[in-house]
Design a protein around this nucleic acid. Structure first.
Length: 218
DNA sequence: GCGACAG
DNA sequence: ATCTTGTCGC
């Protein structure tokens, strides 16, 4: 099921990329899940957390934690193979699947247009978005320094995402659709999940649960 | 060959 | 990601 070599992992991405659908999804969405992962045992085991928030108020309504061995070392472009096994295990523990997934990483803003958000979206069939803290690929102009400021992220002449300022005075985030959402909608949804911090509440809750084993965040 | 390179 | 103190600024 999971590849053991970089070559095999890339082959899987090449095969699944054709299944990615970039198009606006039907709203209103009733829930959003933040997914993230941490590592233990010297990076050989991934510890994932999923926290589901109700929309549009962002109240936590469910969560799950799971751990799975990471089949590959970290290699730029192959991040999903380290985190997806554990994240999928956590998602399976939920009684009800969320309407949307916000991942800590890229969606189609990836060398093969198949970042972790796209991978999770295609495998689960759930709409997904990638919201990364740093750039992997692509070029962009300066981002207006106001909450909501945004500029297109372009790679090889193709629009692949949006560089979004979620808070004035802080570095922007790199948003790209994973599956079943459009670039513009992805940026709007990330903004809708962001309140007083740079990262969306979904990511903050998931990261907190994955690394500190706690949910209370305020 | 020389850089760049999600978490 | 992970190892870690203090420090700057709202």
């Amino acid at each position: 099921m999971w590849p053991t070599t970089a070559e095999a992992a890339i082959a899987i991405q090449q095969e699944l990329r054709s299944q990615v659908i970039i198009a606006p999804t039907q709203t209103p969405l009733r829930s959003v899940a933040g997914v993230d992962a941490g590592f233990e045992d010297d990076g050989r085991v991934a510890r994932a957390a999923v926290v589901v928030l109700r929309l549009p108020d962002l109240t936590p309504i469910a969560y799950a934690v799971a751990r799975q061995p990471a089949p590959l070392p970290y290699i730029p472009g192959l991040l999903s193979f380290r985190e997806a096994p554990a994240i999928l295990a956590a998602l399976e523990q939920l009684a009800t699947p969320p309407d949307l997934l916000i991942c800590d990483g890229q969606g189609i803003a990836h060398p093969r247009r198949f970042g972790i958000a796209s991978h999770l979206g295609v495998v689960t069939g759930i709409s997904s978005i990638g919201c990364a803290k740093t750039l992997l690929i692509g070029e962009h102009d300066a981002v207006p320094d106001v909450r909501g400021g945004r500029v297109l992220l372009v790679d090889r002449g193709e629009p692949v995402g949006m560089v979004l300022r979620t808070r004035s005075g802080t570095k922007p985030v790199f948003v790209s659709p994973g599956h079943l959402v459009s670039i513009e909608q992805a940026a709007d949804l990330v903004l809708a999940c962001t309140t007083r911090y740079r990262l969306p509440e979904t990511t903050r809750y998931a990261h907190n649960l994955a690394s500190h084993g706690k949910l209370p965040l305020k």
